[in-house]
Design a protein around this nucleic acid. Structure first.
Lengths: 220, 220
DNA sequence: CTATAATGTGACCTCGCGGTCATGTGACCG
DNA sequence: CGGTCACATGACCGCGAGGTCACATTATAG
């Protein structure tokens, strides 16, 4: 958690510092991110930085909190198109809303996901928590779908979770990597071509997953 | 390329140094890998290290060469089970043979893939080359399959390549991450349970991909 | 045995890192 | 006005990094 001193700062100054940190983490990841560069980019003294944050991890946590908060804010107004959707429709909706959010905050998302999923893979506790949360969410979704009779109950849940997780990460990575090359990432994300590509990806996944366990056993 | 001095070394010594480098890169990635630790683990002087290699990148390139060479060696004796396979059978075979190779050289593969795919994503030329090579290989495979009438020619090739690539990476990561937790990675990879899981993954992918473009358009 | 070339060595260099702290500054208050 | 308190500052610290180099050691050749 940032120190009180930071919270007392005028919002404008906080924003400058936050943005500098986002840029730095997005560009260099956690290990290689340099506090010297962050303070230089923010136009503050190094001593000030350490009046605001305990250490490097503390800034990063702050960014993570900000992102979470903004994501909650973003999804608060949105409602899934219809109450009794199929899981796949729901998942498609979540994916697309997520893409909208990511393209509205590309650098922020890139900074976080780079640290959490890339470096975190190798030395992270934060990552382990996040990872488990995601898996739990997906597991719930699948089990709910089974109870509603949308998915064959003999399906391998663990496997389905893995598949959905992989796809989610792959799509996020794709949107960030490809989208960042564009002049206007949001325009690119919303373009018919991109949307069609994502639809196809989801479709392939959905179609594969719909096959039941029994069918697999029978056909293999 | 390593210096001549290194090539003149007795093989045993070269192996010690190589292994130390593999351990280091596997444990820390490229940026955070320490030449001090490598020389300490190898029992050589730092000066000697710089008589063998130009710099840090040079050792890594050497490991990459070694891996490539060993992979070629490994696949040389193996033959795809039957000459006129379907692409999917062929792909399944490649995937499984790759898993065998990876579980025979887990640390080496982990070191390389960590640097190339994880860190390389963000600052790599080496990665870009490797990436393109993989994509080209997969593209060839798909186009060949189309000409042989195994795949609907209206399929989106670029999309299919993307899907196959994602799966390959996901499976490699899964095998390394999960397998490294086991006592005997090779035993784990060869176990019926693991094989079944991989079969299912490939099956989901295959089934989704088999749907033709036209069917997709019709159903969406 | 001597001359020469090839290897081995670790003290040393510079650099930038994360982090500290004594001191400066200015707004507010009695 | 003096005193206090929150905030600002940048010189400074220790560390470990990648990399160098003058010198010691060993192998080879005549």
């Amino acid at each position: 958690m940032p120190r009180q001193t930071f919270l007392n700062l005028p919002q404008e100054k906080r924003t400058i510092i936050t943005n500098a940190a986002v840029d730095e983490f997005a560009a260099y990841g956690f290990e290689a991110a340099s506090i010297n560069r962050i303070v230089a980019a923010s136009g503050i003294a190094k001593g000030s930085f350490y009046q605001y944050f305990e250490d490097k991890m503390d800034v990063f946590r702050h960014l993570l909190d900000l992102l979470t908060q903004e994501k909650v804010e973003f999804f608060k107004d949105k409602h899934p198109p219809s109450p009794s959707q199929s899981v796949f429709d729901y998942f498609r909706w979540v994916t697309k809303a997520g893409m909208e959010f990511n393209s509205a905050n590309p650098l922020m998302v890139q900074a976080i996901s780079r640290v959490l999923f890339v470096e975190g893979l190798y030395y992270g506790k934060l990552f382990a928590e996040y990872h488990q949360m995601t898996r739990d969410g997906i597991t719930d979704m699948i089990q709910k779908a089974m109870k509603q009779g949308e998915l064959d109950p003999s399906i391998d849940v663990e496997l389905a979770v893995m598949i959905i997780e992989i796809w989610t990460n792959a799509i996020t990575t794709y949107v960030l990597d490809e989208g960042m090359k564009q002049k206007d990432i949001m325009k690119w994300v919303r373009s018919a071509k991109t949307q069609e590509k994502i639809d196809k990806l989801l479709y392939v996944m959905e179609y594969g997953l719909r096959k039941t366990e029994s069918e697999f056993v029978a056909s293999s």
